[in-house]
Amino acid sequence: MDILFLLIPFSVVLVLIILAGLWWAVDRGQFDDVEGEGERILRND
């Protein structure tokens, strides 16, 4: 039962880190053109 006092705050911190990483990726434009890179390799430059 005592382990819950450690695991619950740890899981909340982990979720906040994951959400911050997702927000950072969206803010930097990582998901703006999802299909563009897949099509770029098919085009002959």
Rank of each mutant, 00 (worst) to 15 (best):
M1Y: 10
M1P: 09
D2F: 14
I3N: 05
I3W: 15
L4W: 15
L6W: 14
L6M: 10
L6T: 04
L7R: 12
P9I: 05
P9H: 09
P9Y: 07
V12M: 08
V12R: 04
V12S: 02
V13C: 06
V13Y: 14
V13R: 06
L14S: 02
L14H: 01
V15Q: 03
V15I: 12
V15F: 13
L16H: 00
L16W: 04
I17K: 01
I18R: 04
L19V: 09
A20L: 14
G21H: 07
G21A: 03
L22E: 07
L22I: 12
W23P: 00
W24R: 14
W24T: 10
A25Q: 12
A25W: 05
D27T: 08
R28V: 06
R28P: 00
R28F: 03
R28N: 09
G29K: 06
Q30V: 05
Q30H: 08
F31K: 03
D32V: 11
D33E: 14
D33G: 02
D33A: 11
V34F: 15
G36S: 13
E37P: 00
E37C: 01
G38H: 09
E39P: 00
E39M: 12
E39A: 10
I41E: 15
I41H: 09
I41S: 07
I41G: 03
I41L: 14
I41Q: 11
L42D: 08
R43F: 06
N44W: 13
N44T: 09
D45P: 14
D45I: 01
D45S: 02
D45M: 02
